[in-house]
């Protein structure tokens, strides 16, 4: 499907979705309430068949977090980006997508480790790179490392 067809098909299953076409890839911004059902549909519905999650990350926009999911269909060869805005920075949480794409398990652990986003119903949510007692979340913009030396 091309961008226009994708847009109308996505509106068909989730009318609340909004679009951002300024970049190279189509961005779909989704409210966090219907998020898990939407992602399950993208995987199971034959017209989407988004079976390949190749990049999962988070962006810290200082007043909110933005979760970013890059999806590709290996059969239809179309791709787009799903974004979810997390308003509450102190208690950022979102449903896990481990059950849909197995690769998400480690990727979500990385985001939990470095951003402090909690993934609900994740089978094994622990820090990935850093020690369990590491203070703070390094990839947040307000993170201060006391041992860092400015040159």
């Amino acid at each position: 499907m091309n961008k226009e067809e994708l847009k109308s098909a996505i509106t068909g299953i989730l009318p609340e979705a909004t679009f951002d076409e300024s970049g190279e890839l189509l961005n779909v911004i989704v409210p966090s309430s219907g998020f898990l059902q939407f992602m399950t549909n993208l995987m199971s519905k034959k017209e989407f068949d988004m079976n390949y999650l190749y990049c999962l990350t988070c962006i810290d926009w200082k007043d909110h977090f933005m979760m970013v999911y890059h999806l590709l269909s290996r059969n239809h060869k179309h791709e787009f980006v799903v974004k979810v805005k997390l308003e509450n920075r102190d208690q950022a949480e979102i449903e896990t997508v481990c059950g849909i794409w197995k690769t998400a398990e480690l990727l979500e652990r990385e985001v939990f480790d470095l951003f402090g986003v909690t993934f609900l119903h994740h089978p094994d949510l622990r820090r990935l790179f850093l020690d369990e007692d590491w203070p703070g979340f390094p990839l947040r913009k307000d993170y201060v490392d006391e041992n860092m030396i400015e040159i």
Binding site: Y54, C55, T57, I59, D60, V68, H70, K102, T103, E105, L106, L107, L139
Partner: peptide, 24 residues
């Protein structure tokens, strides 16, 4: 994956590394 806010250095950079997914 580069996120730019128009400044002279990237706002956020994410590397999707092949080894990470292969290891999983």
């Amino acid at each position: 994956f580069i996120v730019s806010d128009g400044a002279a250095s990237p706002y956020r950079v994410k590397y999707r590394s092949p080894g990470f997914s292969n290891l999983s």
